[in-house]
Nucleic acid binder design. Structure first.
Length: 582
DNA sequence: GCCGTTTTCGGCCCGACTGTTTTCAGTCG
């Protein structure tokens, strides 16, 4: 069992305990344990015979070791199972609805035995909920809207979970006899932020007619299959434990390039490419680019050959959306897309001073290990009381500590003092301007405004942009979680104001909170808005998430120079200084 | 349920916002 599965079950147990009205401190213990398991780099299932090492993990005590041992040995947790049985298997899904917390879920269950979204929707529509305390017509309407929004995203997975699963499956196929190549295709290869299902392509001598039957049998024997959906001659489909569907195709080597191109998509890109093929007197499908007249193969072994035969440069998968990439490939004007190695600093991270897990020094070492030239420490401000956010006094002390560690690192990596402040309901920031002026990086966040009407919220952010101490707008669209629709705000007005004021907008690379999608990013660049990317790391391991946010930047055709933290330290700092201050 | 004790029981991050509650519960971060 993987760490993330252990972590998930502990977290679900916490949710269920919360619905059952259990002691809040016990619930918190399960959540902390879940986080601790997720943050551990060691494979915990391998430590099942060494309880002392499990016990050494912070927030894992005797009770949790027993829980983990049970989970690893039996694949189940008694308490988790018992609570699910008491309620409904789909009960936890209700918690994913916006504004629907444990108290409401418990109320729905106690009054009407509602345990899944379909029943909740039916009850809401029939007026059954109107009699419940705290449920007016308006709140029921809001609930129904939430159900609609949720369904739009249901069944989709964040890019990191999909990548993790796809890599595990790929690993299995790579070690099968006669396999020479395994590649992830589909929307995951194109770097979409959420993924409906995963496409994996396999080729090698194992896929020749004499071998393919045996190979398919080996594929079906994979232990990572939770539920087999279909098994044909050259394609197998199955669900993973978490419900993610994976399609694996066994392909002959000679049509590898055509298949990779075809199954990478997107649909619109492929349509445009096939039209272009017709103009040249060719036809394109998943097996080959071939002549229309005599069906002879023009190209099929590699993507490069196929694009070249269509008089096109090879197009990076992230651009294959029929957004002008074919014209650019024809004129040799495709952008040199930004890459991980272009990023010189991760400029949004938290430490143990607030809700991070590591020290300033540990974050700096982790940044150094990833080859960064600088980082910015941006802990929370006081408005986020739950995180022990910094007030003016503590913020000033924190600046001193950050500068001290900066000196200790002796130039191997620079550490800039910063802060993630909250934009308050009046558009002010929640720390004094005297203190903010001493920070190199001030990120303004809209944590507490998420439920505002569009005009209100936009006005508050516009007001905050007027503050010259604000360098970067963070969490801008509020897509903090997959379940939530973006904040209702006038993004264009905000981008215009930010561009005029010299403030940057932030792409948060953490997969569950990719704030800006490719369209937003394109709009930002068109307006000449500064753009940054960072991980919002709360743990050293989170720094690895940079790659996921990067694919959105690539999809927006961004080049290294478009992103502020691809610049050397001095240029980056100059970019953070607002014109009003210069 | 975890942790750290002036060690085996008591403490454990809390403020802003919303809606409908005329005084606060629920949700969120």
């Amino acid at each position: 069992m993987e760490n993330r599965d252990l972590s998930r079950i502990l977290n679900e147990t916490a949710d269920l305990l919360e619905i059952s009205g259990a002691d809040s401190f016990r619930i918190r213990s399960y959540r902390r344990a879940s986080e601790a398991v997720d943050a551990t780099t060691e494979h915990l299932a391998a430590l099942v015979d060494e309880p002392k090492r499990l016990l050494a993990i912070p927030n894992i005590g005797k009770g949790m070791v027993a829980n983990l041992t049970e989970l690893i040995q039996t694949g189940e947790l008694g308490l988790h199972k018992e609570l699910i049985a008491r309620y409904h298997p789909k009960m936890l899904e209700l918690l994913k609805l916006p504004g629907c917390g444990p108290k409401s879920v418990a109320l729905f269950w106690e009054t009407h035995q509602i345990g899944d979204i379909d029943s909740l929707e039916a009850a809401a529509k029939s007026g059954k909920l109107d009699t419940l305390p705290r449920f007016s017509k308006k709140s029921v309407e809001k609930l129904l809207k939430g159900i609609d929004d949720y369904r739009k995203n249901a069944g989709r997975f964040h890019i990191d979970a999909a990548t993790h699963n796809a890599e595990q499956v790929s690993e299995y196929f790579r070690q099968l006899p006669g396999v020479t190549r395994v590649e992830i295709a589909g929307s995951l290869r194109r770097g979409r932020e959420t993924i409906g299902d995963v496409d994996i392509l396999v080729t090698g001598p194992c896929c020749e007619p004499a071998e393919i039957g045996a190979t398919m049998e080996r594929a079906a024997a994979y232990s990572g299959i939770a539920q087999l959906i279909a098994k044909g001659e050259n394609k197998i489909s199955f669900n993973r434990q978490n419900g993610l569907q994976v399609d694996v195709r066994l392909l002959p080597e000679q049509s590898w390039g055509a298949a990779l191109q075809y199954f990478t998509g997107s649909k619109m890109h492929n349509v445009a490419l096939r039209q272009r093929a017709l103009k040249f007197g060719y036809t394109l499908n998943e097996y080959a680019l071939a002549r229309l007249d005599d069906a002879s193969v023009v190209a099929s072994r590699t993507e490069e050959e196929i694009y070249a035969a269509l008089k096109l440069d090879w197009i990076p998968p992230e651009l294959r959306e029929d957004n002008g990439e074919i014209e650019a490939a024809e004129k040799h004007t495709l952008p040199h897309l930004i890459e991980l190695k272009d990023i010189r600093g991760d400029i949004h991270m938290h430490t143990e001073a607030t809700d991070g897990r590591n020290t300033i020094r540990e974050m700096a070492e982790a940044g150094l290990a990833r080859g960064y030239e600088y980082i910015a420490i941006t802990d929370h401000s006081k408005n986020l009381a739950m995180t022990n956010g910094l007030d003016d006094t503590r913020a000033l002390e924190h600046i001193q500590k950050i500068r001290q560690v900066d000196r200790e690192m002796e130039g191997r990596i620079r550490i800039f003092p910063g802060i993630e402040v909250d934009i308050l309901s009046d558009g002010e920031l929640d720390l004094s301007n005297e203190v903010l002026a001493q920070m190199d990086v001030v990120i303004g966040s809209v944590h507490s405004l998420f439920n505002q009407p569009r005009e209100e919220m936009t006005a508050r952010i516009l007001r905050a942009i007027e503050n010259p101490n604000l360098c970067i707008l963070g969490h801008l669209t509020g897509r903090m979680l997959l379940r939530r629709e973006p904040y209702a705000l006038d993004l264009n007005a905000i981008l215009d104001a930010a561009a005029a004021a010299g403030a940057a907008v932030e792409q948060n690379a953490s997969p569950e909170r990719l704030d800006l999608n490719d369209r937003n990013l394109r709009a930002a660049r068109q307006r000449g808005c500064k753009i940054t990317i960072s991980t919002d790391a709360h743990h050293t391991s989170h720094l690895d998430k940079m790659q996921y946010g990067l694919s959105q930047l690539r999809r927006a055709w961004l080049q290294p120079g478009d992103v502020l933290n691809t610049r050397p330290a001095a240029e980056f700092l100059a970019g953070c200084r607002r014109p009003a201050q210069q």
